[in-house]
Structure formats: structure tokens, C-alpha cells
Design a binder for these strands. Structure first.
Lengths: 345, 345
DNA sequence: CTAAAATGTGCAATCGATTGCATATTTATT
DNA sequence: AATAAATATGCAATCGATTGCACATTTTAG
């Protein structure tokens, strides 16, 4: 009558008049079981449509085979690429990927991280929310020795594995490129400075100015949360300065685009009057017109690396931490290419 | 010494000299436990840093509190939006979302679906891979009465809940719009016809032609897998016809863009010489130049609805199935707007 | 002041797979 | 032939939370 009870190893054992232990061992390829017995057991298991109950196995093994991943927004190309990379590697290694989004809210991030902990993920891969400033929820993972990997937005004060891109270098190269293109007053639209990524991009920018002997004018640097609206506002603000910039390095592609649209509507020619560079290589940056120069971050690869790293930690109990810095790629497109140097592509 | 053993209800029980049953009941707010006892127990649980082991609880309850979601590609805006919507609702209802991608491969989809089953998800939300033509792996869920919800790409022959957009209507409206704009020979670049979505879009297109008394010329319809390359090839093919189209309704935005770029390079003016409409409202469609007219599909809402539906099924054991058809929105942009009618926006 | 009803708590089995230890059987060694 | 070694299998406890049933205590009713 109760058709929805799945067969268990006990059912298989009963069928064959052997013990459940033997069935379990046979199915797990334990060398203590003879080949003949194994084959017999596997045949019966198949015929009964047996599927191991991972819940039970997980409980017994104190291992969930689950990797948690927390991102600010699933629905953003960079993040979904990372997720895709994590899934790719995790799936092949037999792990499930449990996903949650913080919506860039510290409060939700804390909730999620606790929930992931309670749900006994074997490891957590996370890019922290913009707002997060207290990290006790993550320290919990460190304290309990549950592998934790940061990607992109890492927390400097927590010692663990990190996969980041070289944001400093990215900011540096963008700025150097703009200088090479002959721009003289280069502004920067930066993201929240509590996030290392944005902090580094800005410092790369400053360093490039310095190395080129360009005066660093703080009034040309704005900090906000880099939404589309922020981009428009920033454009207004920067262009109403006494001495406005002739190039703007934007903290992401979204603001680069909104800023560009605003400027174009105001009659500025891009890149002739104003050069613009974004960051992240969002899919649209390549296809808008003018196409937006930007820094490509290898999202998929970051996800793969993060998954590889965390699985190694889960399985080997390694206790040494590494920070993998992936190279960025400067993609020069129309929005900053005045043809002043040969490095365009 | 063994510091990494988490406290269990037994530890709490021992601490208070009561039984684990009472602790369990107290923590679950069972009315049979007095308020006083409950408070005492909860206080001790907190002080010990107790966190229920969901693995054990899941095993006992035969419920994993997990919803599986399978998409062709995580890393695609429409799908990541759906995932985002699912996560949004599922998280609030106390479910974890386990994610996997089929890469549009039937073989991987089958593997994943089996794995989701073995991992005892409480329900599965899926949009099938382009190639999938046999659906036994999904019938398994139906047979075992595990809630199954299709979104976007549904399987007609499996009776279960479905969340789709009205692709027929979408195709119809796109075509009607092109006719209204004065285009005379409207081609269509269709996706695999085993997928209902693409099949319906095409039929909507045909029906609109018919209703407007426009001759349906089959040579103007191409079927492929709608990659960027397919778009370029289709453009070549269509424009080399004896009597080429003056408008093309593309099965997605990706092909609309690649096709548009190809045509522009060949000197065609868009929308004057050729009108183009895509499908899906990818983020880039709004920002490219000319911007691409398209059909918006409410991905996030689809995800929310799918999650709501599956949770209701999981929790109420409802046995009636519904197909929710979400409305699409025709977004008229530059690529098809010759100003012939007042309905542009 | 009892009997009946209501309330509070515990025992022990259960969910399904795993594994240390013990036992039984077969093969090898001297 | 007797013992050691190797091979094959089973018993029963375990992972941690849940719950039917039983028992104990308190409250209410008659």
C-alpha cells in the first residue's frame, strides 16, 4: 500500500538473506566484500531501483556534501558566472551547491550565513555584501574549522583562502591607459571604500597618476554605491566642477554606461571630449555604442578556483591559506580609444 | 578535547537533568511543554550555542527542506533572474535552494535530475535543456509524487505545474507590431521546435501573418540553436534569398544583436531598411545602438511563482496542477520603430 | 475526598547508512 | 595435520532529532 517508501539497504539485505552491513560495504566498494557478492548485491539494488539516502549517509558521516555560496545578487553577470564556475567544479566532485543572495544587505547576509552553518554546509564560498562591516558571522566558520573561501570581495582581517582579482593593478592599468590616450584630468567614480576591491581600484588609480607625475585632485574622485542612478548623479556633479575631468574611470560598467548616456545627451563626444572606462566587462559593455573599455574579471574561473580550493580543504583538512590573485585584462574599446597609442584592440 | 563536537539536544538535556524528548519538544514549541520549562531550555540552548542539526532532523522527518533548480545556464540573465526569484521566496519559507546547470545538454540534465532525486530534494524546478527529448528522468519525480514545476521550457506530455510566458502571444504581438510598422516581408529566426516556447513563438508569428492576410513564406523561417553565430549565419542566409525579408523576428536577443551587427556592417540601415525584434529583453538589448525591440519575460516573477507553487505542493500535498501563463510585454525600441504607428515607447 | 480529566515529562523506537569488533570460513605455511 | 594468515560476513552501536505511548503529577468535577 505504501508505495512511496524507497527501498533501503535493509530491503536489499532481506531480499538476499544477508546483512545490511554487507550491502552497505558492497555498494561502497569495500575491499572486504568479494567481487561475486558485490555483483550480486549491485544487481539486486538496481533491480529494486535503490538509491542511497544521502540524508542518512550524511548524518552518519557528519558530512553534507554541500557547498554554500553567498553572493550579493545572483542576478548579476559577474556573480552568476562565478556561481556557474563553482557549480561546474562542485558537481563533478560530487557536491551540491546551495545558493543564497544577500541583496547586498549585511543583515540578510548574517542570517544566511547562520542558516548555512545550521544546515551544515561543508564549506562556504562568499563575496560579502557592500554594507557588511562586522564579520563575526564569518568568524564562526573559522572557529569551527569549516572551510571558508572569499571571492572578489574578501575580508582582510579574516585569515582564510581568497580568490581575488588584482584590483589595484586593474585600476592602475585603466588609468595608465587613459594617460596614454592623452587625457589630462582623469576622474574616478569609486565604490564603497570599506570594500577592498573598490579601495584597491582607487589606489591603483592614484598610483598611476603619481607614477606619471599627474596631480591627484581629490575633487575628481566621488564615492557612492555605483548604481545606475549614482552614475548619472556623478556625471552631473563632476561636469559641473570648475575644472571638470576629461576622462572618468568608473568603478563598474553600470555607472560607466549611465554616465556615458548622460554625457552624450549633454552633447559630449565620447571618446573625443571625454574618455570613459568601466570595470567588470559586463556583457553589455561590448555591444553598446560606443562600446565601453573595461577590465575583464574572470568570473567563471574564479568560481572554479574557489570550488577547487574549498573542496581540497574539505577533503584534506589542509590548514594553510592562500590568496589567489587572478590577472585582469584591460579591454580597450571605443569609449576611451582616441587612437593615441597602439595598444587598442 | 574534541572541541568541534556541536552540542546536541542530549547535551542540553544532561545539563538540565531532563530528557532529550522534552528538549526537542520545547525547542519546537510543542504545547505539551510548559512555558516555564520552554524558557529554561531555550536559555540553556542559547548559552551552549546550540544549533539544531538539520541533517538529523531531515532524516527523521523525511524532508530535506531543499528545493532543486535546474537551468540550462546559470550564467544567463533570464535564468539567473528566475533563480533569484526562487531563492527570494524559498529562503523566506525556510527552504534551501540547490542549483545545477545542464549546459543545455540532455545527458547532463538526466544526471543532475537523478542526483537531485537521490539527494532527496523536496521539489524540483526545472527548465529543460534544448536537446532533451526523452523525459523519463522527470517522470520519475511524478511517479514518486515529488513536486515538479516547469518554468519557461515545459514538457507538454508531463502533467504538472508549469509557469510559462505566453510565447504564442509574444510571437503574435511582435509580428503584428512589425506589420503595423509597414514591414512587408517578415522573416523569423526560430529556435528548436521541440521546445514549446520556440514552437509557440513561431506559431504566434504565423497566426499574425494569417490574420493580417500576409502570405506565409516558409523560406523566410530558419530554425537553429540561436547562438550568436547562428544569428550571423541566418542573416547571411536570409539576405541572400532571391526575395529577402525587410524585417526579422529573432527567437532571442542574442541572435537579434549578432544579426543586426552583421546587417549594419553590410550597409543596411536599421530600422529603415530592415526591422529587427528580439525576444527576452536581455539587459544589453536596451543599451545597444540601435536599441533592440523585444519581448520582456518576467524572470524574477516566474521564479517567485515557481517557488510559491512548489512550496504549496510540498506542504499541502495538493494534487491539482496548474499552468500559470505570465503576460509578456512588447518593448518597442529603435530597431523596429519607423514611427509608422503611435504605439512606440 | 475520590474519580476523571488535563497537563507535564520520559522511554525507547525510528529515520537509513556506516563501521569497529567479533566470528566464521577458506587458504597457506611448516 | 595443526596452526597461522587471509578472506568473508554479521552484530550492534552510532549519527541527532522526533514522536507514539506510557506514566506521573496536578487540576477539576461530582
Amino acid at each position: 500500500m505504501n508505495k512511496n517508501t524507497e527501498p533501503t539497504i535493509h530491503d536489499i539485505a532481506r531480499e538476499l538473506n544477508i546483512s545490511a552491513s554487507t550491502v552497505s560495504r558492497a555498494l561502497n566498494n569495500n575491499p572486504r566484500i568479494s567481487l561475486k557478492t558485490k555483483e550480486k548485491i549491485k544487481a539486486v539494488a538496481d533491480s529494486m531501483g535503490y538509491r542511497p539516502n544521502t540524508l542518512a549517509s550524511n548524518l552518519r558521516n557528519k558530512k553534507s556534501n554541500r557547498i554554500g555560496i553567498v553572493v550579493p545578487l545572483i542576478n548579476r553577470h559577474f556573480f552568476s558566472s562565478v556561481i556557474s564556475g563553482v557549480e561546474d567544479v562542485a558537481y563533478k566532485a560530487g557536491y551540491n551547491v546551495v545558493i543564497s543572495q544577500s541583496n547586498d544587505l549585511a543583515s540578510k547576509e548574517i542570517e544566511i550565513v547562520h542558516s548555512m552553518f545550521t544546515n551544515r554546509v561543508d564549506g562556504l564560498i562568499i563575496s560579502i555584501a557592500m554594507q557588511t562591516e562586522n564579520f563575526d558571522h564569518l568568524k564562526l566558520f573559522r572557529k569551527k574549522h569549516i572551510p571558508l573561501v572569499f571571492f572578489d570581495r574578501a575580508v582582510p582581517e579574516i585569515e582564510t583562502d581568497k580568490i581575488v582579482v588584482d584590483d589595484f593593478d586593474g585600476g592602475f592599468r585603466v588609468t595608465q591607459h587613459l594617460i596614454n590616450q592623452g587625457y589630462k584630468r582623469i576622474g574616478h567614480l569609486a565604490g564603497p571604500q570599506n570594500l577592498r576591491t573598490y579601495f584597491d581600484r582607487k589606489n591603483g588609480y592614484i598610483e598611476a597618476l603619481k607614477q606619471n607625475g599627474v596631480f591627484y585632485d581629490e575633487s575628481l574622485v566621488l564615492v557612492n554605491t555605483l548604481t545606475s542612478e549614482d552614475g548619472t548623479l556623478a556625471a552631473q556633479q563632476l561636469m559641473s566642477l570648475q575644472n571638470p575631468p576629461d576622462a572618468i574611470f568608473c568603478g563598474n560598467d553600470t555607472t560607466a554606461l549611465s554616465l556615458m548616456i548622460y554625457l552624450r545627451d549633454k552633447g559630449f563626444r565620447i571618446p573625443q571630449d571625454i574618455g570613459i572606462v568601466g570595470f567588470s566587462n559586463e556583457p553589455f559593455s561590448k555591444v553598446v555604442s560606443p562600446s565601453i573599455s573595461t577590465i575583464a574579471q574572470p568570473g567563471f574561473e574564479m568560481g572554479q578556483k574557489a570550488a577547487e580550493l574549498i573542496i581540497r580543504k574539505i577533503e584534506n583538512q589542509e590548514r594553510t591559506y592562500q590568496t589567489i590573485v587572478l590577472p585582469t585584462e584591460l579591454i580597450i574599446r571605443e569609449s576611451s580609444d582616441r587612437g593615441k597609442s597602439g595598444q587598442s584592440q
